[in-house]
Write a protein that binds this DNA or RNA. Structure first.
Lengths: 259, 259
DNA sequence: TAAGATTTGTTCGTATGTATC
DNA sequence: GGATACATACGAACAAATCTT
């Protein structure tokens, strides 16, 4: 292990945007991890060694580690054999971090559905004929959870969240990591949003039922490998879902996503 | 300002996954910021006050602030009137943070284009007739930068990056913040990837020229407000670009994105 | 320009907590 | 239980940045 050597701080040209020492230390560690091609569980040098190598105080090093920890890049354990380890960024954390960005952005339901309408059919098509019977059964079980019409507003909300789970589960099987992430990110936003039902807009049962039937038809198409059919069913489903959502007043992203 | 009051740490049930003190402090501050509906530039209590309120040492508080800083949620300044401030997460940081997640995920060019093919036409259609003549001129200026065929591999790479900039600029005008972010995120990934030209695959001039003509035609369609026309042109353009990229061997996301 | 005030930044020494053997 | 090897936390002092006068 050859860390960037002693006194690794280049005497900064005063022109540069001055960054704090912890930030620079974090950058160097990051670069070092990449250069060393360290993998998921690999151990980083301990505090003591870092203090030596960087010639800085414990507190500074610790702040640097917290910077990396917040990004999900390292995890830390105490005790013998403990220390800091390279940690793969979890999907949950990635969603939370990205959610923070949109916290300030006032996304609308229409914004999200513009993208869902483009991406969800793509997922459906790419998964046709690729799911095991067990996977399909899992989807069917989910759909059956909201077979009965919702009685209360709270029940309706739960059903909504369940139906979003359908899409999250579907996305999990995609071998396109970016596509899967985006689907699940949007599902989370929609799950989290606070929905205020319009008083004059009672539960639209037909619209809801139509959405549910779409999902059932979709499972059939997936099972039988009809890719283009799955695509159009999903496209219809999204159109329905959007109408359903826009029949309600929703306030989107008015909170930070819990880690 | 009423912070969660003195000794705000609930005596944790030993069952819970023990989080570090800085992490819990960071969570509480985050919750507090949301509860207070603080906005972009608002000032947080100073170190001294936090030390009081939380009853913890300075180092602990500082580590908590670094956790928030890494997420882009606060920035800190020294001096009188200094302190920590609520800071809107920048798009750059959001891209970097999300990029870290995909660092471990081995995205392929095909993965990215599966999504670009779905989203870029959507942007094009939604922008038809909405751009000012100045915006259109900016796009034309970009396209003119790679009018001449590239001589060297390096030149070709620069042209590629420039052509991606075309899409980033386009996305900037979308009023869908999520859509705009995604377009630009993918553009960044593609800009950053290290491209190894296949030795036996010399520059495909026709393919490249075709892509450029698509962009020129697209600008015309945007100017004249032909939304569906813009959509299909962009769809063709993406198909062309994908073929162009796959004619090369590309290693995607093998580094962290610089902050 | 200079001095003083305010607030974060950094260091060091010490003590405590925690997991492994 | 005890010894060991680590991170975690505290507190006091001093350094640096930046605003005001």
């Amino acid at each position: 292990m050859s860390f960037p050597s002693r006194d690794p701080m280049p005497r900064k040209p005063a022109t540069e945007p001055k960054r704090s020492r912890p930030a620079r230390v974090a950058d160097q560690i990051k670069d070092w991890v990449v250069a060393q091609r360290l993998k998921k569980g690999d151990r980083l040098p301990g505090e003591a060694e870092m203090i030596d190598r960087f010639g800085m105080a414990k507190g500074t090093i610790r702040e640097a580690m917290r910077l990396l920890e917040a990004q999900g890049l390292v995890t830390t354990r105490t005790g013998p054999g403990g220390g800091s380890f390279v940690g793969e960024v979890s999907e949950e954390r990635a969603r939370a971090l990205l959610g923070n960005y949109f916290y300030f952005k006032d996304l609308t339901v229409a914004d999200i559905y513009q993208i869902r309408r483009a991406l969800e059919p793509e997922v459906a098509a790419s998964l046709a004929g690729k799911l095991s019977e067990a996977d399909l059964a899992e989807l069917e079980a989910l759909v059956s959870q909201y077979a009965a019409p919702a009685a209360t507003a709270e029940e309706e909300r739960e059903q909504h969240v369940d139906s979003l789970k359908f899409h999250a589960v579907l996305a999990r099987h995609s071998d396109n990591a970016l596509l899967a992430f985006l689907i699940r990110f949007m599902a989370q936003i929609l799950s989290d949003l606070t929905v205020y039902r319009k008083l004059y807009a009672p539960h639209n049962h037909e619209l809801w039922e139509s959405g549910r039937n779409h999902q059932i038809a979709l499972i059939a198409a997936l099972r039988e490998g009809r890719a283009e059919n799955a695509r159009t069913i999903m496209a219809d489903h999204m159109a329905t879902a959007q109408r359903f959502m826009e029949a309600q007043e929703a306030e989107v992203m008015k909170r930070f996503i819990a880690e």
